[in-house]
Amino acid sequence: MKAILFLALVLSAVQDLSPLHAEPQTGMLVGRVVYMGPAIPEQVVEVTRDSAFCGTQATLRPMTLHPKTRGLEGAVVSIDGVASPLSNPAVPALVLTNTRCAFTPRLAVGVVGQQVEIRNDDPIMHNTHISMGPRTLVNVAMIPASRPVGKPLKQSGIYTVKCDAHKFMQAHILAFTHPFFSLTDETGAFRIPSLPPGEHQVTIWHDTLGTVQQSVTIAAQGETHVTLEYPNHADARKQ
């Protein structure tokens, strides 16, 4: 009996040292989302409510392009279908603030279960309405100086954020069930770490240009560099 136990311990120790139990190899996707088509011009809309504070006009910016790189700010790059459950669901809340008659940020990305914390910094009342299709996540009146309202993201997908009081206010929240996503910065750059090597389907989403997909092959180690180009917006299928 003692011999069997000893043998089991030795086998266990040998297994722990074997390469089979080494940390799995992962790579990082590093890149830039660019848009070479004509820039979509800003839109100016009339403000019909609370104009004394919000102003008489609001400017809607359909896209922000970096002048040198043509990098697209505010695109979400993600890779679905990688088996990796979230290791730390206790992530900090996504803060969404009503400020100067706009949502800040205009685009937020998070994971299912993460809290969205809604705030109002304005001296006027807003009505923050977050929904996915016809289903409401939350619709709350936010009077001036009200306490923040929290609500967890219930499902993955694209949430629309509106203020029913001020129609020109709009934002989006994208929720994922995995950590393989990134939001492009002002130069269009992004990085997604800890990806298993091999071929993956990358999805890029932008609130004006819609969704496009592209294949990438992640190297077994180090960084894989890509440039993901949005087709001319007239050709992109908005979803």
Binding site: N127, T128, N139, V140, A141, I143, S146
Partner: peptide, 14 residues
């Protein structure tokens, strides 16, 4: 509670 799916918001927080 508000009326979900309409512009009528919840005033529970207030």
């Amino acid at each position: 509670t508000g009326l979900d799916g309409t512009p009528m918001p919840s005033y529970a927080n207030e």
